[in-house]
Amino acid sequence: MTARRPLSTARLAYLDQLEAVERLRVGILGGCPDCETEPDEMCAGCGRCQCHTHDTCTRPEAAARLRLALTDDTRETQ
């Protein structure tokens, strides 16, 4: 097995730019760039990300989530 070469300064700068673009994308779409929570991974009960504790969070019941999902599917087919 060959030894890995250290990354060049240009490659490190490129990786930093890729990370900045990804953080910007997550933030623009409504997620949290700090903890890299995608918008669809935000808490269903309070809308917060993984940066926060959810000790007092009341998540919606499964029936309410199902009703919402069915309503969204109906809108898409009309």
Rank of each mutant, 00 (worst) to 15 (best):
R59C: 08
L24N: 15
L70P: 01
R67N: 04
C35L: 00
C49F: 04
L68N: 06
R25S: 03
G30A: 00
P6D: 12
R67E: 12
C35M: 00
I28R: 14
I28C: 10
C43G: 05
L12D: 01
L66S: 09
T58H: 10
M42P: 01
R59L: 13
L12S: 09
E36I: 04
R11G: 00
D72Q: 13
V21I: 14
C43V: 05
R59K: 13
A3Q: 14
C43I: 03
E36A: 08
A63S: 15
D16E: 15
L7W: 07
E76Q: 10
T77L: 15
M42S: 00
T53C: 06
E41G: 14
C35G: 00
E19I: 00
L24M: 15
D34C: 04
C32I: 02
V21E: 14
C35N: 00
C51R: 13
V26H: 01
D55G: 10
T56D: 13
T53G: 08
G31K: 09
V21K: 12
L7H: 08
Y14E: 13
T53R: 11
L15K: 10
R23T: 07
E36S: 09
H52Y: 10
M42L: 15
C43R: 03
E19M: 02
E61P: 06
T58F: 05
T9Y: 03
Q17L: 03
M1Y: 01
E38P: 04
T9H: 05
A20I: 02
R5K: 15
A63M: 08
C43D: 06
T2R: 11
L24I: 11
Q78L: 06
L7S: 11
G27M: 08
V26E: 01
P60C: 03
H54V: 12
T9C: 00
Q17N: 12
A13C: 10
A3L: 12
Q17W: 01
R75G: 09
Q50N: 06
G30S: 00
G27D: 12
G27Q: 12
A64S: 11
A62G: 05
T71N: 10
E41W: 08
A44N: 04
L12G: 01
R48F: 07
D73Y: 14
L12F: 05
P60D: 02
G31M: 10
L7E: 11
L68G: 05
R48C: 08
C35R: 00
T74F: 11
